[in-house]
């Protein structure tokens, strides 16, 4: 989900760029040097995974995964997504320079919001965690579509129809992302829970338990 070059007005591009820059600055501040290597590789994995096309009926959609990235990186999602988008632009021409800010906001702002809403919940009991994971995937795409729609609306009021079209066209994507997020979170919980940073609380408790044992 991204907005093409040349569509949006100057003020919208500028405010998108400014917000994305602020988010990236916060994200970089929160990522210390020891975690950047990991964020870089997760960003590379996000880049590769977003090329996967998942079948839906006769057609297919490609995954966006902003919810999962948010759960894994928190504010670090901003720099990770900026970098991935810049590389997408360079390697595939999916965008140029002026829309980088707005497109970052479309994916990274929902990622951070989902981190705060669901980051803790996905560590709870399964009955809480799995619905939370579904909501995380669903809401991340919904918010992204709303941000994209808002960018179009502020450019041109006549784009209301296009905005509604974007949101409704993404409903199947929201459901699929929700399901993928559920299975992904279930997988992380079993395989490597520390990928979801809410687990750091659990990590801190773990050494004590080991000592006692």
């Amino acid at each position: 989900m991204h907005i093409s070059e040349g569509v949006l007005s100057g003020p919208v591009l500028l405010s998108g760029g400014a917000l994305a820059a602020a988010g990236t600055a916060i994200g970089l501040k929160k990522l210390d040097y020891d975690r950047i290597a990991r964020a870089g590789l997760l960003s590379a994995a996000f880049f590769v995974a977003s090329l996967i096309h998942v079948p839906i009926g006769p057609s297919s959609v490609h995954l966006i995964l902003s919810g999962i990235v948010g759960l894994m990186l928190g504010w670090g999602a901003f720099p990770a997504i900026v970098v991935a988008l810049l590389l997408q632009g360079i390697l595939f021409q999916f965008g140029g320079l002026t829309t980088l800010g707005v497109n970052t906001m479309i994916m990274a702002a929902p990622a951070v919001i989902c981190f705060y809403l669901f980051g803790r919940l996905v560590h709870g009991r399964r009955a809480v965690a799995l619905p939370a994971a579904f909501a995380c995937g669903f809401v991340s795409i919904l918010l992204g579509a709303v941000v994209a729609g808002a960018a179009l609306m502020f450019t041109e009021e006549n784009f209301l129809e296009v905005t509604l079209l974007i949101v409704s066209a993404h409903i199947p994507v929201m459901v699929i992302e929700g399901m993928i997020t559920v299975f992904c979170v279930a997988f992380f919980r079993r395989v490597q829970p520390d990928l979801l940073p809410g687990a750091r609380v659990a990590d801190m408790a773990a050494p004590q338990e080991r000592n006692e044992a």
Binding site: G40, A44, F47, P79
Partner: peptide, 9 residues
Amino acid sequence: KLVYLLLMC
């Protein structure tokens, strides 16, 4: 830091 992230990615 952003450059480092870009190069690692």
